[in-house]
């Protein structure tokens, strides 16, 4: 197995693990903030997965700075990077909204535990 293959398997495997760890936190943790931390870990895993898709052997960044004009063949796929850029910013926005909701919930219920906040059925 060559190096690129190993790198790829490592990156994919780690992203999958990150997604699973995050999901575990979301599903089993009782603290609302912990749930949001889990969500951001999932996000991190997905971003890593997306970057891993674009990586190629001996790759270099898709930027034509002086001195690297002839490296076109080695350039990694720029599209996933653009997508991740968008996804990171969106994820930050969602995290901010989620945390403000947590503050509201705490103001109302005086607890962060999800099983004590159930005026509505879950």
């Amino acid at each position: 197995m060559d190096t690129t293959e190993l790198i790829r398997i490592g990156v994919y495997g780690t992203s999958i693990l990150l997604i699973l760890i995050g999901l575990y936190a979301v599903l089993t943790k009782r603290s609302l903030i912990k749930i949001i931390i889990g969500l951001s870990i999932i996000d991190g895993g997905i971003h890593l997965l997306l970057i891993g898709i674009g990586y190629i052997k001996d790759g270099t960044a898709p930027i034509f700075s002086p001195g690297s004009e002839n490296a076109v063949a080695r350039m990694v796929d720029p599209v996933p990077q653009a997508l991740v850029l968008t996804a990171i910013v969106i994820g930050f926005g969602v995290t901010a909204v989620a945390l403000s909701l947590v503050i509201r919930l705490y103001r109302h219920h005086n607890t962060l535990k999800i099983d004590e906040i159930k005026n509505l059925k879950w």
């Binding site: 270099t60 991740v84 990171i88 910013v89």
Partner: peptide
């Protein structure tokens, strides 16, 4: 993994 743009975004945020 050769994605400096993304690295920059992740660092900044």
């Amino acid at each position: 993994l050769q994605a400096p743009d993304v690295a920059l975004t992740e660092a900044a945020i």
